[in-house]
Every structure is written in structure tokens, then in C-alpha cells.
Nucleic acid binder design. Structure first.
Lengths: 251, 251
DNA sequence: TCCTGCATAATTGTATACAATTATGCAGGA
DNA sequence: TCCTGCATAATTGTATACAATTATGCAGGA
């Protein structure tokens, strides 16, 4: 592996269009052109994908050397990861990967249940023709992949379905919130979808939500989205995957 | 003002008890003993209190000089403020105080309505005797100050009421979430409470919520807490204070 | 064996130098 | 007057030196 892999070299296609007006849209894009941004994304990816164990210590120099950057961008990325709740920094001591407890997962799903409901409600009121069409295509495609047993594609489509919903609710605050939670439980969710036969069932629920949104029934859409999350959680518990997590606060 | 005001000098009572086990509890405490932490808190305070205008640019050197620290802690604080949504950083350009739109405020209150409801529900299930007693005292005291027209104390007690509720729900995730939102609308809320006669009415609602929690009626507690937020929002709109905000996305 | 205390190493915290990027202001021309 | 282009200044990005703090390992003694 190249020691310089992340280092900026030569003429990257630096985003010149960045203006004050659309910062929030371009945020993630521009982020990737600074070392800090790339370290941040890399570490987040690695933590979520399970490369680092829970409670593992992340050392500035080690990470820096691995990615071919100095400590400064690493430190800044650490500060961000801390606020995202992915690591915990103890002053003068170190940065540790945050553990997710069983209870955390349950709490997140309960919170998400409410917020996905609100999102579906707002989406019903604000969704565009294009978004509706993409959702229909999404559900249709997912049906196909479910029959074929293509779990990878199913997971991808599931992600996309929720993404469209988040966009459609026209609230950048709620969207941001839901994305945060969504990625927070990603390590669990991915496994859940591929295991068991949640895939097809989940897609049926998507279809029902879509129908409610399409018919303009916000109450129903909210209720179905609420239940969709609860079902996802229930399924996860049944699959016993929650046992992957540490039992409690860890003593 | 001393240029060295924030600089660590001599023997601060450095928190030696910090352990991995209770990092999340001590987080805010330990934070205050690093320059970055103090810069972070200072800037957050200043932004929320309105010292900086919306869309005002924050410059690393200027802030650093003002607080008597170098750019490094300032930069790290910036990265955190960005993730808290208080400033926006445009790469190679600058950091700008985030504007809150009218719609943002409405969205936050709607989201909070749901989450405060969930919080009341969980608090009903988990609240301790001590917490119940402090809440009763809180409501009782607030009644007194409402009669006397002590708006400052009322605002303080209102904050505390919600704080106890957040603690009582025994979900550090939900607690964290609600605190974030709570402080996000702090600049609005403070003005709301002191204006109009929302203070007494708000306290009546607190009392009702408290009664529901005490009697173990989680459904009622949730419903009342939902409504409490909606009422707070309605009141704010009526007071016309939302006009303090920029009208829309700002073009 | 087990503990204590201290020297040393490792690690994080902060300041600062230099590089890269962006902003500013002015000369010169249409 | 208004625009363009360039030199220069201002500002952010990154690396690194040094300070402060914490971790480690071992000597010496109970």
C-alpha cells in the first residue's frame, strides 16, 4: 500500500463552483478534496465497516502514517468523528471507537420510527413527480432482485428508497438527522437485510408506503413508515443479530 | 480584555478521574480543560447569544488572537461547530455562521414534539424518586416566579425541567439528540419565554406532564409533551418572533 | 511474590512555519 | 466608465517542532 495514497497530488479537479449559497449541498463533495475530509470519510467508513474493534484506540501518528498525512488532518477528523458519536476522545489520553450497545440500537430504531414517519408525512406533501417515479422504479426493481435472491442489490435499493424519501420530505434538517441515524446503524442493518428473508418483506412495506404517499394519504404514510422501522427492528432481534453487541454498558 | 484569558496557566484543577468507563458523562467537563474545548464552548455561546451575525465570517487568526490561542485549537473548534451545524466551512475559503430559517425553526419544533413525547414516555418508565421530586420542586418554584413576574428565573427553571426529563428517559442517545435541538433554538426560545405570557402557561403544561409521569400514564405523558412543543411553537409564531429570521433560503 | 516510585518512552496538546488557495486593488486598455 | 489581468496581500491547509501529559517497565524493598 502506498504511503502517499491520500496525499493530494497534482491537479485534482477541485470544485471551483463552491459558493456560500449551496454549501450544504456540496458539503460532502468538497469535503473529499481536503486531507481532513478524506481522513474523516476513510475513518468513518472503516469504523462502520468494522475494521476497528469497539473500544479500540486510534492513534494519531499511526493513522497519519497509514494514510500518508500528518497529524493535523487526523486530529481534525478525530474531532468530527467524536461529534458524530463514532469515537470518544479522552483529553491527553486517546481516541477510542465507540461501542454501540443493544439498547442504543433499540433506542435508535424507536427514534427513527417516529422520524421516518414524519418524513413520510412530509414527503407526501412535497414529493415531486420525478421522485415518485424513481421510487416506483426502485420498488419494481427490488421485486425482481428479491425473486432472484440478489441480496447485494436489495440492500442497495433499500438504501436508495430511504434516500429518496429523505430528499422528498424537503426538510434539510430532518434529512440530515435521518441520514445520521441511518449510517449509525449501518453495520447492523446490512447484516440484517442479507440474513433472514427480510428483504422481500421490507420491499412489500416500501410498496405500501409508496402507495400511501402517491395517494396523498399522509396519515397512512406516517403510520406505515412507523411500523416499517419497528418491523425492521423486530426482525433484527429475532435473527439474534443483536447478540453481536456487547451486553450492556460494559464494566 | 486580557489577550491571555483562555490560555491555560499554572495548575488548573485538571480532572484526574477521567476513565474510559464514564467518558460520556464527563465529556463536557473535561472538554473545558483543553484550549480547543474552551474555544469551542466560547464560540458556541457567542453564536447562540447572537454576538455574531448570521453569515458572518469567522477568521481563524482573529478568533485566535481574541482568545489568546494559536490557530490549531481554533481550527479544531471550527470543525466541531460545523458538525453541530452552527457554522459552515467552505474549504480554502472560510467559516460562516449558519443562518436559521423560519422553516428550520418549524421543522425543529415538529421533530422535537415527537422526540419530547418519546422522552416523556420513557421517563415515565424510568424516572427515579429523586428526579420526580426535583421536578415537583421545579414546577412549584416556577409557579411562584410566574406570579412575581421573574422572567429570568422562569427561563432557567424551564431549561431545568426539560433537562431532568432528558436525564430521566435513561437513553443517552435521545438525551443527546434533544439537548442538541434544545440549544439550537435557544436564541429563539429565550426571547419567546420572556415575551408574551407563555411562561405561566408553559409551567401549567409542565405540571400536567409531571402528573402524567407520576401516575405512570406513559401514553398521556407522551401526548402532553407532544402538545407542549406544538404550543410553544404556536405561541412563538403568534408573538411574531419568527420574523426575526430571514424569510427563506436566502437567495 | 507483590507493591511502590521513578526514569524513560510514547502520546496528545499547542504553536508556528511554510504551502496552497482565495481576495483585493490597481494599472492599462476598450 | 467599465472591464480584464496580474501582482500582492490575506487567509486557510498541512507539516512539524516543542511542551505537557500519560503509559511503561524496571529497580528496590517489604
Amino acid at each position: 500500500m502506498s504511503e502517499q495514497s491520500l496525499r493530494r497530488k497534482g491537479n485534482h479537479p477541485v470544485n471551483k463552483e463552491t459558493k456560500v449559497a449551496d454549501y450544504d449541498v456540496k458539503q460532502e463533495v468538497t469535503d473529499k478534496f481536503s486531507l481532513r475530509g478524506r481522513v474523516f470519510h476513510k475513518l468513518r467508513e472503516d469504523i462502520l465497516s468494522g475494521k476497528y474493534e469497539e473500544h479500540e484506540e486510534l492513534k494519531e501518528v499511526a493513522i497519519g502514517e497509514e494514510l500518508g498525512v500528518s497529524r493535523t488532518p487526523v486530529r481534525e477528523a478525530f474531532r468530527q468523528l467524536e461529534l458524530e458519536g463514532l469515537i470518544q476522545i479522552i483529553p491527553n489520553k486517546g481516541a477510542y471507537v465507540t461501542g454501540i450497545t443493544e439498547k442504543d440500537v433499540r433506542d435508535i430504531y424507536m427514534i427513527r420510527s417516529l422520524l421516518e414517519g414524519l418524513c413520510a408525512r412530509w414527503a407526501t406533501e412535497h414529493i415531486t413527480k420525478e421522485q415518485l417515479e424513481e421510487m416506483e422504479e426502485n420498488v419494481y426493481l427490488a421485486k425482481f432482485h428479491a425473486q432472484k435472491g440478489h441480496l447485494e442489490q436489495l440492500a442497495e435499493l433499500d438504501n436508495r428508497f430511504h434516500d429518496i424519501m429523505y430528499e422528498a420530505c424537503s426538510s434539510k434538517l430532518l434529512e440530515h438527522q435521518l441520514r445520521d441515524f441511518h449510517q449509525y446503524v449501518l453495520r447492523v442493518r446490512r447484516k440484517t437485510l442479507s440474513s433472514a428473508n427480510r428483504g422481500p418483506k421490507s420491499n412489500e412495506e416500501h410498496e405500501q408506503i409508496l402507495e400511501a404517499v402517491k395517494s396523498g394519504d399522509a396519515d397512512l404514510a406516517e403510520k406505515l413508515a412507523n411500523q416499517h422501522m419497528i418491523n425492521a427492528y423486530e426482525n433484527m432481534v429475532q435473527s439474534g443479530l443483536h447478540e453481536l453487541f456487547q451486553k450492556d454498558k460494559q464494566k
